[in-house]
Design a protein around this nucleic acid. Structure first.
Lengths: 114, 114
DNA sequence: CGGAATCCGCTATGATACTG
DNA sequence: CAGTATCATAGCGGATTCCG
């Protein structure tokens, strides 16, 4: 069979497992992450408790989990100051900041189309 | 209202329930919708079976559900031709088409940052 | 061919309590 | 203050079968 095994005119790059769009959604998907990113961006620097009060309805479990994942994915930076009581601050990495404009476009699209 | 009752320097518009960014994610979130949109966009017009084969790993249940929701949200158009056997074609609405460039930016961001 | 109807497991999410 | 540790649950997503 000299045939290239593409039965359909559809590309793996678009719909396949490796699609980078899918990866992006894996990272910023879920129920809370985008809102967390936006709140940090809006405030530049935020403390844990601030986020907890700011993101409407989030629980400790989800906030802690989301922050850990965002940090692991290089979107959020965590700084801990060992004062008493402990103070922890979060801010966006440059990588995350470069994502914000796109999210704002998405938001704008939502306002115009929903 | 002389007073804006905000205990935190964080805005409801960003993190609250009404945030349009959240709404967008509700519509195109989930595991398959973005890929479905991209495949339809890439092909202009697609049949159900094509989508089923093109979107890697999707099941009937999810494809049918996703398409119904996308149609209800005004992102895809369904055309049924009562031939024998039945033929059904899907294409993007203008609204969805205006979303594609943003998704491509997101994809580009993913390629550069992940 | 293009779905609908069932049934079901898993994982994301959540409530609550507790700790360094 | 900034989280962990448990335990519980809902609903998303999946496998299979059936239908016009």
């Amino acid at each position: 069979m000299s045939k290239i095994a593409k039965k359909e005119p559809l590309c793996e790059e678009i719909a396949g497992k490796g699609c980078s769009l899918k990866k992006v959604l894996d990272i910023i998907g879920g129920k809370w992450k985008i809102m967390i990113l936006c709140v940090i961006d809006y405030n530049e620097v935020v403390r844990y408790g601030q986020l907890n009060r700011a993101v409407d309805g989030i629980t400790n479990t989800m906030l802690a989990n989301s922050l850990k994942e965002l940090e692991a994915d290089g979107l959020v930076e965590r700084k801990q100051y060992d004062e008493m009581p402990v103070r922890v601050e979060y801010n966006l990495t440059p990588k995350a900041k470069s994502l914000i404009p796109i999210l704002l476009e998405l938001k704008k699209w939502g306002e115009e189309n929903l």
